Each structure stands twice: as structure tokens, then as C-alpha cells.
Amino acid sequence: MKLIVKLALACAVSATALSAGAAMAADKFVVGYANMADTDVFVMARKTAFIAAAKADPDVDIKFTDANNDASKQLDQIDNLIAQKVNAIVVVPVDYQGIVPGVEKANEAGIPVIALGIQSAGGKYTFVGSKEEDAGRLQGEYMKAHLPKDAKILYLQGTLGLSNTQGRLKGFQDALGRPDVTTLASLTGNYDRAEGMKVTEDWIQSFPQFDAIVAANDQMALGALQALQGADRLKGVMISGVDGVPDSLNAIKAGDMTQTIFQNAAGQAKAAFDVVEGLKKGEPAPAEKLVPFESITKDNVAQYMKK
């Protein structure tokens, strides 16, 4: 009889503990973080910064997914997060147009959406990030001021069709504003270092002289740098990229790269988490929270290397 009573008491204690654990889980504010690609250097830096920001609030639980640059996979992952009834979704869209069904489904489920870094072509969401045209504008302004007369340039585009690719190119073209400057070629390197290197190797064979390579991100710029160094063609060629990753900062310090546009991964992550905290408190979500781009050259690279 005593054994039966002890077992009953033990079961009661276990049931109470399970109930408490369930209640504790229920008390959490659960955020789904649908990442574009964990293989992307800048995207991962931003994700890491978001994790760091989230540590300040133990009542927030984050569920991570990685689409690996597959728009369809990302939509499936968002469907799964919606089915789990998360309290909010942070998404780094693979595609500006392709993410719309996911945003709209979250809207229908009453789940707030934060589009981080890249906007959505439709649906209701808060955009947290930087205006892509501003990155191109800063590159264009620098080249306008520093290119020699009758300069010849090459432009490495990001993945075709993406909004950030289009915005950065437009911002660059609008700001350059010099009819004497000739763009010899403009091809995609798909935001990839190896592809940027391959395109540049082909350009080296095709064009005996050019004054600058402007790239829509640092990975392509660094690939271009490798190609130019390998062919002993770096002298007299300016290289500009976007993101402000450590390899680019080191290249600028060494005098091998000319410029990068700092996209503040930590600033964007912190701003996104601030929106999450507001939602948790029941505050209305803002339409956007912008984090400005900043131009980095040899004159100010030291201050960014300390960050």
C-alpha cells in the first residue's frame, strides 16, 4: 500500500512539473526566423547579431530555418512556422516577389511579419534594413569624384531579378552622372566570390584596359580582386563593393580595394529585435525601421575595423 501511495505521489509531482514546463513554454514569445541562406557571409553576420540581441530577453524563444537560397523551400518553412503558431516571423526573403505568398499567409493567420534586409513585393509587414539605392548611390558618388577623365568601368551585378540587385544598380547609375565614363560590361556574379572571380577573369581577357570594377556586394568585389591579382592587373584599377565584411576592410587597409559600403548587420539585427520587443508588449508594428549605409575608404577604414 505504501509503495502505491509513493508511486501516486511521484506521478502527481511529475504531472505538476510537466504542467509547469508547459506553462513556461506557453509564456514564451516565439519568433520564427526564416533565413535566406546560412552560407552567405553578411546574412549570417546579421543572424548572429540577432541571436546576440535576443539574449537580452529570456522570454523570447527563436525557431530558425535556412532556405539555402531556395524561394519555394522558404515558403514551405514559413508554412511550418505558421502551423506552429509562432508569435511573429522575421524573414530574410530569398526573393522580393517570391516571398509574397508567405507574407500574405502570415497576415491571414494574424502573425506579424518583419522583412529583414529585403522587402516583400506584397502583403503587410515591417521592413527593417537599408535602402538599396543608397548603397549604389554612395558607390556612384565616389566613382564620379575619383574616376579619371574618359574612364572605362565594369559592373558586377547581384543575382538578376532581386530587388537589392536592381536597387543598387539604379542608385549607382543615377549617381554616377558622367557622360565621359563608359561601362564596358555589366554581368551578374550572383553575389558569389567564385563567380565574381570567374567573370573578372573573362573581362581581363576581353578588355586590355579599364579603370574600375564596381560590385553589388563584397564577395564579388573580393573575387574580382583575386582575379586581378592573379593576372597582375590590379594596378590602377579601383574596386568597390557593398557590405563592409572583414576581408574587404583588410583589403582597403592594404590598399588593394578602394571602397566598400558598410551595411550594418548588427544595427539591422538590433532594430529587428526592437520591433519584436514592441510586438511582445502589444505595441503596433512600424511600417519600417531604416539603418543607413555608410561609405568606407582608406580615410576611415580604421574606425570600422574596431567594430
Rank of each mutant, 00 (worst) to 15 (best):
K105D: 05
A71Q: 10
A151G: 05
G117E: 08
G117K: 04
P112Q: 04
N80T: 12
F50S: 06
G161D: 00
I153F: 04
A71F: 08
N68F: 11
T65E: 11
Q77G: 01
T65M: 04
Q119E: 15
L169G: 12
E104L: 06
E104P: 01
G171C: 07
T65C: 08
Q119A: 13
A71I: 09
N68P: 02
D59G: 15
I153P: 00
V128F: 09
Q119F: 08
K85A: 12
I114Y: 05
A151D: 06
P93H: 07
S163R: 05
L156M: 04
Q119S: 14
E132Q: 15
Q173I: 06
E108D: 14
E133Y: 15
P93S: 09
S72T: 08
V60I: 13
D95K: 01
R137L: 09
G98H: 03
A109M: 10
I114T: 06
K149G: 09
A52H: 14
D150I: 00
I153W: 06
V92R: 00
L138P: 03
G123Q: 03
A106V: 07
G171V: 13
I62Y: 08
Q97M: 10
Q157I: 10
Q74F: 07
V103A: 02
E104D: 10
N80M: 09
K131C: 13
L160V: 10
E108K: 11
L116N: 11
I51T: 15
V90A: 02
E141M: 08
A135P: 10
G140V: 06
G117R: 01
P101D: 08
K105Q: 07
F172G: 00
E108F: 07
G129K: 03
L147M: 02
A121F: 09
R137P: 04
Y155E: 02
K63D: 02
L75I: 03
